[in-house]
Design a protein around this nucleic acid. Structure first.
Lengths: 197, 197
DNA sequence: CCCATAGGTTAACGACCGCTAACCTCCCTG
DNA sequence: CAGGGAGGTTAGCGGTCGTTAACCTATGGG
């Protein structure tokens, strides 16, 4: 995994602050002036970098869905041939990393989807659906007994479990990132096992 | 449990429609005219029943938190003396009923809290905290091995799991309410058991 | 029978918000 | 060294939104 070391571009700064503000107060609850102020420029200056407020949200949501999906696909390829249990663990691990490191994006991901233009919303939904189906496939390899509708429901529910990170108190009050990650991982596996019983 | 048979008051109609609209498009994304139209009157007519748009949201959120808490307290009393496992099952059952029957409220519950006046927000947060602590207490009776911070995290995560109902497809496409409820129940128990391991 | 009250209506005000226009200032390049 | 693009600025327009004001109508009790 290639780690970025160069400074973030202004565009990236804006996206990061916009994500935080949207998550905190909702898309309609944040004005462009506030987003600008968060990166040290004033409202209309944003339009040198984005076509509009909608475009920021669209880029955020498409970016999240895309990164989740490509990350999962990569994990699936890398663990080709290994037992399905390990693949499922890898998927869970990837999702937890994301949920712990990009909480604002996780929040936006299932909250502001309906604020998108039709075409963008369709794209995001398609990426999300592919991501879910990929999990469903792996889950049914580990637990062949579980029917497909139940598997899909179980996957959505486990996403709800893993995406609960924003409710687990501020990043400082947690018992430590590693401990929390392990707890979430165990719970996800336990929930899946129980779903198959 | 006393079942209402009389017709809903206009006030209740308004609250129900407002909840649905707020859940669909966000608090700031819905205008008072739309809420009025949803109950057959026009925008400003709402002010005969509520002090303002904020007051509707406040009543919704305080109502949800309060009903969840009192319901849990009642279940705790009714099952006094019975084994802790049964109490936990009863709590889970109550929360699932709520998540399946009042999806818009579940959505609002963790999404629009920050749009409240300070005093209302404090009240809601206090009710929520009591509800969580009640679960933590019961959970630690069932699994004495689990430490308190981990128990609290586990409870929040299971709420995330149970509150995933809005993502499980429209009420028609589900395999049936009872089946879904049982699946969620099993998964919650499985997640808790794994958290304690 | 009268009239107060509950529950509506439309018009309009003031604030805010997304966005554009017009302009300015570096800095890099031919 | 000219000049042009990149990236800012402020002013302001047009639309929307929450709320209030003023007015209307039915209805039920003294």
């Amino acid at each position: 995994m290639a780690i970025r070391t160069d400074a973030p571009t202004r565009r990236e700064q804006i996206l990061k602050e916009a994500a935080r503000l949207f998550a905190e107060r909702g898309f309609h609850g944040v004005g462009v002036d506030e987003i600008g102020a968060a990166v040290g420029i004033s409202g209309p200056g944003l339009y040198r970098h984005f076509a509009g407020k909608d475009a920021m949200l669209a880029e955020l949501l498409v970016g999240i869905s895309g990164r989740l999906l490509t990350g999962a696909k990569r994990r699936l390829q890398e663990s080709d041939g290994t037992p399905a249990e390990g693949v499922l663990d890898s998927l869970i691990e990837g999702h937890i990393d994301f949920a712990l490191d990009d909480r604002p994006l996780i929040t936006l991901h299932d909250r502001e989807l309906d604020r998108l233009r039709d075409s963008d919303r369709k794209l995001v939904r398609q990426l999300q659906r592919q991501y879910v189906e990929l999990w469903v496939q792996v889950l049914r390899e580990v637990y062949p007994a579980i029917a497909e509708p139940a598997a899909r429901s179980a996957v959505h529910s486990v996403f709800g479990l893993l995406n609960s990170t924003p409710h687990l108190g501020r990043p400082g009050s947690l018992p430590g990132r590693g401990t929390t990650a392990q707890l979430l991982h165990r719970m996800a596996r336990g929930a899946f096992a129980a779903a198959a019983a």
